[in-house]
């Protein structure tokens, strides 16, 4: 049971933070684009970069989840 639960918890809990972060980031970027449509292109590039860095936190959780799922933790077996 714990073998199935632990990868799920790892990715599920790990995705909360980046999810909120990406939401806030896009909110800010869209507001900025709405106020200054002439620099929308530049803001969009920076927004994508910001999303990528926020997302990499979720990627670390994904790595842990995949390791648990396919390789397994030493104590779990």
């Amino acid at each position: 049971m714990i073998e199935i639960l632990s990868p799920g918890l790892a990715i599920g809990l790990g995705a909360i933070g980046p999810g909120i972060g990406i939401g806030l980031l896009v909110m800010g970027a869209l507001q900025a684009m709405g106020r200054n449509p002439e620099v929308a292109g530049e803001i969009r590039t920076n927004m994508i970069l910001g999303i990528v860095f926020a997302e990499s936190i979720a990627i670390y959780a994904l790595v842990v989840a995949l390791l648990l799922l396919f390789v397994g933790a030493p104590g779990l077996q």
Partner: peptide
């Protein structure tokens, strides 16, 4: 190295 490789792999694999 880790974030670059796992971002690409994780997204496409998922």
């Amino acid at each position: 190295i880790i974030s670059l490789s796992f971002r690409l792999f994780g997204n496409i694999f998922a």
